[in-house]
Every structure is written in structure tokens, then in C-alpha cells.
Amino acid sequence: MVLAAMVLVLEGEGTPEPLGLRGFFYTLLKEAFPEVHDQGENPFALGFGVWRGQPWARVSLLKEELYARLSPKLFGLEGQEVRLGRPYRVRAVLQEGHPWAGLTTYPRLFQGPGSPNLPLRFHTPTFFRRKGVQYPLPEPRLVLESLLRRLEAFGPLRAPEGVREGLLERTTVRFLEGRTRMARAEVDTVGFVGRVVYHLPRATEEEALWLTALGRFAFFSGLGAKTGLGYGLVRPYAEASPELEGP
């Protein structure tokens, strides 16, 4: 029941290219876990960016078996040359000690008190497949449906029907600050980047716990379409937290 976000700290020019990063990861995936392509939802998400002037690439794994098979290959890249659209040297492979690295379990997502407020920062363009087109607005139902679908595909729990209905039908937007940004990699569309605070009025204790857990899960899963290209990279934020340098 492990979820892991592993970061490759890179030496090289610029940030990885989305298609190059995906091609590199799919080569590793084909060797370690070829049957994963037979599944509907992808049990992984990719990301890239710059932190403290250092480019990085991120592989987030939502299944323990996938982590068990892929993590040795990823750790083995340290000191190696890789091509992620352009060449890099892998300076380090981290699952802690970097703002986009982390390790947890599905039960730990639900530890601690919940909150009726869910603040999310959208670091890379986020969009959703809606009625055959790409839709760039982070509406509460689209965001929470995306997270519920992926969590229930790979985690041990399903949201009780009453909780699901409350989350999807009553969650509103309390604060929104952002813009759209062009996304060009296999698709030509725009996605939302910025900050949103979602709010569930009259939330029960169980509803608040699920809302908070979904926010924690979003850090690992991403949300929306094309998370395998680095889109939909999001994380909860606190008003007092420092801004992170994005991709």
C-alpha cells in the first residue's frame, strides 16, 4: 500500500521535455512491469521542474508492486547519463529531502483530523477530458472525480456513497487565483496554473477527512489528463508556506 514520489536531481541545461521524459520512463516500465499497460488508469504520474536552480524529473508510483520493481532501477541511475529529450547526468535519486519527493501509505493519507477546506496549488497546466475536448477550468467536481477515481483504482478504500455525494455535489470554490498556460506535448491545449481553495460547507467529520486525504493523494497522483506527460502536477499548500519554483 506504498505510494512513492521519487525525484531525479539532474545536471544539464533546461528542464526535461515531456515526451522525452515519458519515453524514458516507458522504457524502464516495459522492462520492469510490462503488464501495466493493460490497465485503464495509469498507476504512475510524471513531473519535472527546477528547484534552487537545479533541474529535476519526478516519477510517482501509486502501487506497491510497481514501486518494488521500479525503485531499484531508478536508484541505480545515480551517476548515470540519461536522455530526457535532452541529455542529463543524474546527480541523485531521492524519495525524501526534496519538496517533490515523498513516501507514504494509503492508510496514512487518512491519519489526522480532516478539514472542510482544501487548498491546492496547480504547478503545471491542468486540464480535463470533457465531452471530447480538453477543458482547462479546475471545477470542484472535475478535480474530486479525478482524485477519487485514481485513489479507488489503486488504494484499499472506496468512499462511502454519502461521502462521495457530499464531496461531488456540495464542494465549492472559496478562493481562486491563476491563469491558463499553453501545454504542447502530444496535445495542443491550455491548462490552469495557480491556487484554488476548495470548501465543503457543513462538512461532516468523515467528509472532511476524505477531502483532506484526497489533497494528500493529489501530491502523488496528479490530477486531470496527461499526468504521464507531467501535466496536472499539484500539491496542497498553506498560506504561510514558501513559494516553490515550478517547471
Rank of each mutant, 00 (worst) to 15 (best):
V59Y: 03
S60R: 01
S60E: 00
E64T: 15
E65H: 09
L66F: 08
L66W: 07
L70M: 11
S71A: 15
S71R: 14
S71K: 12
S71T: 12
P72M: 07
K73D: 03
L74N: 00
L74G: 00
F75Y: 13
G76D: 07
G76S: 10
L77T: 08
L77R: 04
G79R: 01
Q80N: 07
E81V: 08
E81C: 00
E81L: 07
E81A: 11
V82H: 01
V82G: 02
R83G: 00
L84S: 00
L84I: 06
G85T: 09
P87E: 12
P87D: 12
P87L: 08
Y88L: 06
V90P: 04
V90W: 11
R91G: 02
A92I: 01
A92R: 15
V93S: 06
V93L: 00
L94M: 12
Q95D: 12
H98K: 11
W100S: 00
A101Q: 05
G102N: 05
L103D: 03
L103C: 08
T105Y: 01
T105M: 04
T105H: 05
T105V: 06
R108S: 12
R108N: 06
L109Y: 02
L109H: 04
Q111H: 10
G112S: 08
G114Q: 03
S115K: 07
P116R: 07
N117Y: 13
L118H: 07
L118K: 09
P119H: 10
R121P: 03
R121K: 13
H123C: 04
H123L: 14
T124F: 04
T124Y: 07
T124E: 03
F128A: 05
F128L: 13
R130N: 01
R130V: 14
R130S: 10
V133S: 11
Q134F: 13
Y135C: 00
P136T: 02
L137A: 15
E139V: 12
P140H: 07
P140I: 06
P140D: 08
R141H: 13
V143D: 05
V143Y: 05
L144Q: 01
L144D: 00
E145F: 11
S146A: 13
S146L: 08
L148P: 10
R149S: 15
R149T: 15
L151M: 14
L151I: 10
L151W: 08
E152V: 03
L157V: 15
R158H: 15
A159S: 15
E161M: 04
E161R: 15
V163R: 06
V163P: 03
R164V: 05
